[in-house]
Design a protein around this nucleic acid. Structure first.
Lengths: 243, 243
DNA sequence: GACCAGCCTTGACCTGCATCAAGGACGGAG
DNA sequence: CTCCGTCCTTGATGCAGGTCAAGGCTGGTC
């Protein structure tokens, strides 16, 4: 679905997305070729193997990037929140499924046009490189979780990554005081993200609740009364990259 | 240890490394600031938390990128072979340990000087972006292995990734006929790469050997008589990115 | 050419998470 | 308000892979 354009100057992700470093000239070009698209909750943005005709930035909502094996096993490899970039300049096909888990608004560019901008604007190219390097760091950090952490550590680290992500989106300090989180994902999606089953994930939420490390007023809401204490559950928590 | 410089024109990784797309001018600058460094087997290239004073390309040998948790659990997040890039322009510190697992030769640049080239040469910047995007794809692909695959599938996929990597380094087709592999890693390092224990890894090698899917003339050598058959052991093997 | 240290393999046993199986809670539709 | 579908939780049981323990191999050294 097409939406009315919002001026880049009024865009909520103007200073965090791939356009963050764009100068006035870059922005004029981007503005002329962008279009807003909305994808309803549950909708597909691209399927694994599909052509990447467009690249886009997430403006609002939440999407997931995952792969499903033939026998149904599924692993999420990325959580896409506002300002995250979707698509791969220079590659025609996605090797992962990208799906909206809430209603999503995308700021979209045709791939060839965007690639041209990357070639002509060092600001955009540099920003894209920085974002890609950040993503790489996040992916590698997550590999440590998937390869070596216990179920309890995974859930704790997931919650902490949301705490950090929310803080950074709002440009706030990370406080140790109570933090209220809205979970963008169902238990099943969280399990896919953490390389666990839904049952194990649910049991870990329950265990953390019993021990007072979190409160869960509703299934999609989590209160972390003491962030520092939850951090103690994750060995190695270096305050790693913001996933 | 410093080594004599080799002219870029004679460099074995000239057309695969970060300098692959460099034009004559770029190359002249790179040549003037590069130096060769050799790191002995077992030596550290950078430790997690250390400053990245240099960035480099692996010219020869094999290195690993990994993180060790406080209690000794260890996860490898990348295998670095000739032409791979080490370091992160724009970031001062490494969050992983990088270690030589064989004698390694690096083509090294001081980070600020290299960053300057990235800013001034679109060819180098573009190549770096492409390489980083490839790394990201590999890291995400590996996440699927770490999160969802069985021990047997992990070992099979590891062997297949080496088959592909060797073929691509030599610009050959991937044949289905017998392939002889030299394992660059010890069983322990393989286990760390695959998110398994050394015992489980060893048992899977033995099981594949019993079933005739591989032969192991020595611990560091593996013969794959039929690549296609080994591929059948890995559900989803899309011929994924070359790790 | 015998010794030694560092790998590698194999066996026995254990445990954390998966699987299988029931409910329970909650929110949207009528 | 009540019904129903979806999502979530909890319990019982099983098993893949981890852990603990013992050799075996091999290649480098003197």
């Amino acid at each position: 679905m097409r939406l009315a354009k919002v001026a880049c100057a009024d865009c909520p992700i103007r200073h965090r997305a791939v356009c963050a470093e764009a100068d006035a000239d870059d922005l004029a070009v981007l503005e002329s070729i962008k279009s807003y698209v909305s994808v309803p909750k549950g909708g597909s943005i691209v399927a694994a193997g599909d052509a990447f005709d467009h690249v886009s930035s997430v403006v609002a909502g939440c999407a997931t990037m995952s792969r499903t094996l033939e026998d149904g096993r599924r692993q999420m490899v990325g959580l896409l929140l506002p300002s995250d970039f979707i698509g791969r300049p220079g590659r025609a096909r996605s090797s992962f499924d990208i799906e909206a888990v809430s209603d999503v608004t995308l700021c979209r560019f045709e791939r060839p046009a965007f690639e041209k901008i990357v070639r002509s604007s060092p600001n955009v190219a540099q920003r894209l490189l920085t974002m890609t390097l950040d993503e790489l760091e996040i992916a590698r950090d997550w590999s440590v979780l998937l390869g070596r952490m216990t179920a309890r550590e995974r859930v704790a680290k997931f919650l902490l990554s949301l705490v950090r992500r929310e803080a950074s989106a709002e440009g706030q300090e990370i406080t140790d005081g109570p933090v209220v989180l809205h979970l963008p994902l169902s238990r099943e999606a969280i399990a896919d993200y953490l390389g666990l089953t839904i049952e194990t994930t649910s049991r870990q939420f329950s265990a953390l609740r019993r021990e007072g490390l979190i409160e869960t007023p509703s299934a999609r809401q989590v209160v972390v009364p003491d962030v520092a204490q939850l951090t103690l559950e994750v060995l190695d928590d270096d305050g790693g990259p913001i996933a």
